[in-house]
Design a protein around this nucleic acid. Structure first.
Length: 562
RNA sequence: GGCCCCAUGGUCAAGCGGUUAAGACAUCGCCCUUUCACGGCGGUAACUCGAGUUCGAUUCUCGAUGGGGUCACCA
């Protein structure tokens, strides 16, 4: 069999060899020792989820922490699944969460500015492009041609029906299904037979001619999981589809070699195809990169109570838009992801509350190799820690931006009340131990909404210890004596006076000791005042709240509650 | 079903043959306090099971069980 001839018959227009391309794309210069090159390789299907961010953050950290390069390559080899505009949205979202690329299918402005794409053709940066796989057909074909020339790949004209039939037969006879070995009908077609098919107008796919022996095992080092052991691949996988574009397997091999990716971070769903990939790298005569197969994010299903994979249909919290809409600080989401990405991040953060996360020593071997359960509670807690360190100004600005985009009806309210809100956000802020009660924008608004008459509602029950008449008496007395000029202790002394005059204990302890001698204690009395003014039993320091509200509003609320 | 990966409290997880088996979240209790989602202290709670190796296994090996992944001209 003259493979040379077959190669020319199949790819007459291809005159370059893989070696030519290797010469065109030499290794990156000037990277420091140990620099890692990673890539994010999404298919433009239009949905970005938390799992993508999780992986992207790993890519970004690995590269940037090591002084390496993180680039974006678009895997658009399947036109059917492509969604218009998916990549700009992806870039925008990732950038929102602080992930930017050095190279690839993105347009990076000056340091820190947002990537933007209007024209995908022009939206590339870097010396290893094109970064859109649909533009790289000539490169893949040159590589495929080499394989055909060496007798390692061949055209296959089997129809879908034929393959389907084959599969049924194999399944019925308990044979490992697929096109392989003796079942690969077109493995050894003669030149004449190939010509005949071609002349009949048939378009072949190109399959890799596997010489693997599944009874033989080989070992691969995975940076996350350590050594994994796999049987050799037997399948004659297709490497070039009828649309002249490669399958993922082959594109991965060619691109990651030519683009000099050193660490391939991907989901564990790829682990099963590692045998195919190393076989392909081998056939091309190339070294394969270090694989990092990370785990999928899981959650507990409310109805079944079982641990299961996060699904985009059932779980809104998987979509990144969920966090943007609720107004989570991107930094909070990132901090949470860091804690599940590298097990010691959380402790590092506790020890170094104000250090930049760039200083954390991120590494692949610290990544979890068992399925991680997504924990909203934990996210919220991390978020509280993040927000506790923000200034009132930062919180306000974030709230404003969030409202502008997602709750426009609140935007003006916020901007009109900036001065007041800054004071509100400043309650117990700053200092060694700031309050940890702000979580995300929507929640923050709920948290402070009683400052606005139009959002004020009674959310808490009046204390049972206080009768309706007493409530009125308390509020009457309070309205008469309230003076914003009082300092915190003078103010509270008056509250005590009211309590005592109506038969309530001055101290909670007195009441606890002799519950029969009092109607209640000062806590119940101030609870009445608190609810009257804020509508709820739990708030930050009431004296400060009143200082911010001003006497007029305080009195108005007190009168309203009678 | 074949093959692969994984297995420590409710959750995320330290742990590399000898530990009172860390820590964080959640939960519970107490304390502080006019309230708190703040803060302080403390508690409950874990090595999936069975063999083997070993003086000794959470740790190593094998098997079982469970969970996950994968078996496309999708990535």
């Amino acid at each position: 069999m003259d493979y040379e001839k077959l190669a020319d018959l199949l790819f007459p227009e291809i005159d370059k060899t893989p070696e030519d391309y290797e010469a065109m794309y030499p290794e990156r210069k000037g990277l420091k020792e140990g620099a890692i090159t990673t890539r994010l390789a999404p298919s433009p299907t239009g949905f970005i989820h938390l799992g993508n961010l999780y992986g992207a953050l790993a890519d970004e950290r690995l590269a940037h922490k090591s002084g390496g390069v993180c680039y974006l390559r678009v895997e658009d080899t399947d036109e059917k699944r492509e969604v218009e505009g998916a990549i700009p949205v992806l870039l925008d979202t990732l950038s929102y969460f602080g992930i930017n690329f050095d190279e690839g299918a993105c347009h990076l402005g000056t340091e820190g500015s947002k990537p933007s794409i209007s024209d995908p053709e022009a939206a590339e940066r870097g010396d290893y492009g094109p970064y859109w796989q649909s533009e790289r057909s000539h490169i893949y074909k040159a590589c495929v041609k080499k394989l055909v020339r060496e007798g390692k790949a061949y055209p296959c004209f089997m129809t879908e029906e034929e393959i389907e039939e084959l599969r049924k037969y194999q399944e019925a006879n308990k044979i490992n299904p697929g096109v392989w070995g003796e079942y690969a009908k077109h493995r050894n077609l003669s030149i004449e037979e190939v010509k005949a098919h071609l002349d009949a107008g048939e378009k072949p796919v190109i399959r890799f001619k596997s010489n693997g022996d599944p009874s033989k095992y080989f070992k691969v080092r995975d940076a996350i999981r350590g050594e994994i052991s796999m049987p050799e691949n037997v399948q004659d996988v297709v490497i070039l589809k009828k649309n002249d574009l490669p399958t993922y397997h082959f594109a991965h091999v060619v691109d990651d070699h030519l683009m000099h990716t050193t660490y391939v971070v991907r989901g564990e769903e790829w682990m099963a195809s590692v045998p195919i990939h190393v076989q392909l790298f081998d056939a091309m005569g190339w070294e394969y990169p270090i694989f990092c197969h990370n785990t999928v994010l899981m959650k507990i299903d409310e109805t079944t109570g079982q641990k299961r994979k996060l699904s985009k249909r059932k779980d809104p919290e998987l979509g990144l838009s969920y966090y943007k809409e609720l107004g989570y600080f991107p930094e909070a989401v990132r901090e949470y992801l860091m804690t599940i990405l590298n097990s010691d991040y959380e402790e590092w953060r506790i020890a170094n509350p104000y250090k930049d996360y760039n200083e954390f020593n991120f590494s692949a071997d610290k990544m979890s190799d068992s399925g991680t359960l997504f924990d909203l509670n934990k996210l919220n807690d991390v978020s509280k820690d993040v927000l506790a360190k923000k200034s009132a100004e930062e919180i306000f600005d974030f709230m404003q931006n969030w409202a502008n985009e997602y709750e426009p009806e609140k935007a003006k309210l916020l901007s009109d009340n900036k001065e007041m809100l800054l004071k509100v956000f400043d309650i117990d802020r700053g200092g060694e131990k700031p309050r940890k009660d702000l979580v995300f924008a929507k929640q923050i608004f709920e948290f402070v909404k009683y400052f606005f008459d139009e959002y004020f509602v009674y959310e808490s029950e009046w204390p049972a210890e206080v009768s309706v008449e007493d409530r009125k008496a308390i509020l009457d007395a309070y309205a008469k004596t309230y003076d914003p000029a009082d300092d915190n202790s003078a103010w509270f002394a008056k509250v005590k006076e009211i309590a005592v005059s109506l038969g309530y204990a001055e101290k909670p302890k007195d009441y606890k000791k002799n519950p029969e001698s009092f109607k209640g204690h000062v806590g119940h009395v101030s609870s009445v005042i608190r609810i009257a003014i804020t509508g709820r039993a739990n708030t930050p320091d009431l004296w400060t709240i009143q200082q911010i509200m001003g006497k007029e509003k305080v009195i108005k609320r007190v009168e309203m509650a009678k």
